[in-house]
Design a protein around this nucleic acid. Structure first.
Lengths: 342, 342
DNA sequence: TTGAAAGCGCTAACAT
DNA sequence: ATGTTAGCGCTTTCAA
């Protein structure tokens, strides 16, 4: 924090009061004569004066700052969200504090505390939710605007704002696609089951199975953690069952892990095993074969969540507490038709 | 920004002065009796009081906040840096403002202005540098601690702190590797040549060529922009020249683009054309074939830059103004030996 | 059209 | 061991 020229200096140089300077800075200058206004503007320019936002915040109770709490910016799903958030924030003159929690409730708590001390105007939050969510309830109850993104929390609170994907539908779509292409023995690699989105994708998978009268086999459901490595491990297990012809990996990263294991073991994709991912991150179209996956509009989701948050902050009406984005199936090359009788 | 309980309230409830409260909050409590200290602590806990960092900053002139200015968090190279930065910041009690500039000088300027208004204690900066760098000089001259990361700027300033990779050596390493495996006609897809790192990688390429007495052919040097698409476009051009057996793509993303084009056109990697990338981002080991590339320790670089910055902020001695990381070649599967006589 | 004064919540020098 | 006081840089009411 540098020592800098202050409003006092400007006032002195312009031979006016600081009130007057303040007014022109804030465009509340209806009642200021053109002449003094110009003089002040001139001096501000010459001196390269920049108002101190800290001092301003102390009186206005607004910091024009938003906290973005996510598990890990290093997970390719989140940069898009962060970018959408930042772009929106930027438009409305807000800045974003980036906070990585690794789905660790303690880190979440620390960041919540720090963000409140720093008086952020609002918080965008992707939380691991299921094991503990009291801190989130507390946060929301504290009155600070909060928009949940990507993962909703239980229980459904009346007061919760959120931007989510219809993960249930996404899981359903992925599974149905495999079924309709003839697959019957479909494994599912889930996300960490303490997240709502992982649970919902799994539920979508189960529903599709039962809609088509396929028995749900718990040995075909393997819990992963949304990271590459868990996809590799899960694939090892899955191929022990020779009947499996299709895999639904609940995110693309785990699908990459599956690719790795399968290729190492000499399986061909999709000839021997078909794979559907989830997220549609950038690299999924580069992979060989290109990954068939469920697309999430992550950038838009980040943008929307921030837009909602800013409305909340600025007291505008927000019509829908929860906005739900639709998943869509992106057909590429990692799935083939399966004929039982071959 | 919520209305909250203040130090005044605590003082009143504890029947002490706000000074006393302040002292115990800040652990300057040598001279406070255990008894009053405990009473105050107790009340703080009961009331869930959190000091207002804004008010504190106004008097201490420290915000415990750092600005991180990067081109685009969506480029897989930067999340690692951001995460390293955040992890380090977190250890020392700092928060990070995330700023994406798209290498746009105007956005850079805006962010610099805003960050200064918000009184960040220091700035970590990846800048497109060559076309215009006066604003960076101004920034540094203003006295606020700045650490450049990833891309250095011209001219070498005495006062500049930075954390960089030896990009020249990286370019050299990549090219030499291809040469030593028998390649003679090696194309280079550069980054945007207004960045120092792109220029240096290209220079390394050229030096390796000339060290091995291979003529530099300008038609084999194609300027890209570090994005996937430019790799695709460049590859189209490169394969017009049937002699080319090796490609040095100056980052992995462009190498992915090359993969895409080559595969589409029926080329096999590395059988028909060998490729070396640069960065070693996460996905490069998933690609088929796994990409041989030059590794940058991005996370460590982010961490180190932040550590240096915090030392600067807190007035500690920083021995080396510039810390340079060493690139290393990661041999994987995208390069094969080339025998001229086959 | 302009300015004086109070105060935002806190720290820190200086009393006591 | 504790408290009084001034002041950080700004906005905002109210008065002139």
């Amino acid at each position: 924090m540098q020592v800098a020229i202050t409003i006092k200096d400007i006032a002195r140089l312009a031979n006016v009061s600081i009130t007057t300077v303040s007014k022109v800075i804030n465009n509340k200058d209806d009642s200021i004569s053109e002449q003094t206004k110009n003089k002040i503007l001139q001096i501000i320019k010459e001196t390269n004066y920049q108002p101190n936002a800290i001092a301003r915040s102390l009186v206005t109770k607004k910091t024009k700052t938003i906290g973005l709490i996510i598990p890990d910016i290093t997970n390719p799903f989140f940069p898009e969200i962060a970018r959408g958030a930042e772009d929106c924030a930027n438009i409305y003159g807000y800045n974003i504090f980036l906070c990585n929690t690794d789905d660790n409730a303690e880190k979440e708590n620390n960041y919540i505390a720090v963000l409140r001390e720093k008086c952020v105007d609002g918080i965008i939050f992707t939380s691991s939710s299921i094991p503990k969510y009291e801190h989130i309830i507390d946060l929301i109850d504290s009155g600070i605007p909060v928009v949940m993104i990507d993962r909703s929390i239980e229980p459904k609170l009346k007061n919760i704002y959120g931007v989510f994907l219809d993960n249930y539908k996404g899981g359903y779509l992925a599974t149905k696609y495999l079924i309709e292409l003839g697959h019957r023995n479909i494994a599912c690699i889930t996300g960490p089951l303490y997240t709502k989105s992982a649970i919902e994708r799994l539920n979508g998978y189960k529903k599709a199975l039962s809609d088509f009268n396929i028995e749900i086999n718990n040995s075909m459901i393997i819990e992963g953690d949304f990271k590459i490595n868990s996809g590799m491990v899960a694939a090892e297990k899955i191929i022990e069952n020779k009947d499996v012809t299709g895999i639904f990996a609940c995110n693309d990263l785990m699908a990459y892990g599956v690719y790795k294991t399968l290729k190492k073991k000499g399986y061909r994709i999709p000839d021997d095993i078909s794979i559907v991912g989830f997220d549609d991150i950038q690299l999924s179209q580069i992979l060989e074969p290109q990954l068939t996956t469920i697309k999430q509009p992550s950038y838009d989701m980040g943008l929307t969540a921030t837009r909602v948050l800013i409305k909340l902050i600025e007291g505008e009406k927000v019509r829908k507490k929860v906005v739900k984005f639709e998943p869509s199936l992106i057909e590429r090359k990692s799935v083939r038709e399966y004929h039982n009788n071959i």
